[in-house]
Nucleic acid binder design. Structure first.
Length: 113
DNA sequence: CGATTGACGTACG
DNA sequence: TCGTACGCCAATC
């Protein structure tokens, strides 16, 4: 067991820690992992997890604008919006309303070791 | 093996 | 204030 999890694994762990009804963006996760501006890797990890079959609440991860940028990758774009609405979020025009209110920053909510 | 792309974000004009 | 350009790292073509 390597003490340092792979970048992908770390992303999965953070995303899995997202409370229900909360959402976050790629940049926040990237910053929490220390990658900083490599927010693209987070998105890549999401795609990989989706392909790997791992269960990751990727629907809770959106871009910094609160737009469901990854809805197209869920198989059914409506599924992502539906999941978020099911958690009490308000989606309009593929965008999360009150995104700031439901924003969950791992680097703030989650304590660094 | 080199070039391109990608579920993004920030900087600069 | 809005639009464009660049950087990040890895995987794929």
């Amino acid at each position: 067991m390597p003490e340092e999890l792979s970048f992908f694994d770390q992303v999965y762990e953070v995303v899995r820690c997202i409370p229900k009804g909360k959402v976050t963006n790629y940049g926040a996760i990237a910053r929490y992992l220390g990658t900083g501006k490599s927010s693209r890797m987070v998105g890549w990890a999401m795609n990989a997890s989706h392909i790997s079959g791992l269960k990751v609440p990727a629907h809770r991860v959106v871009n910094r604008l609160g737009i469901l940028s990854g809805k197209a990758h869920f198989g059914d774009p409506q599924a992502m919006q539906r999941l978020l609405e099911k958690e009490g979020l308000k989606i309009e025009n593929d965008r999360i309303k009150n995104f700031e209110a439901h924003f969950w920053d791992p680097s703030k909510e989650l304590e660094l070791p």
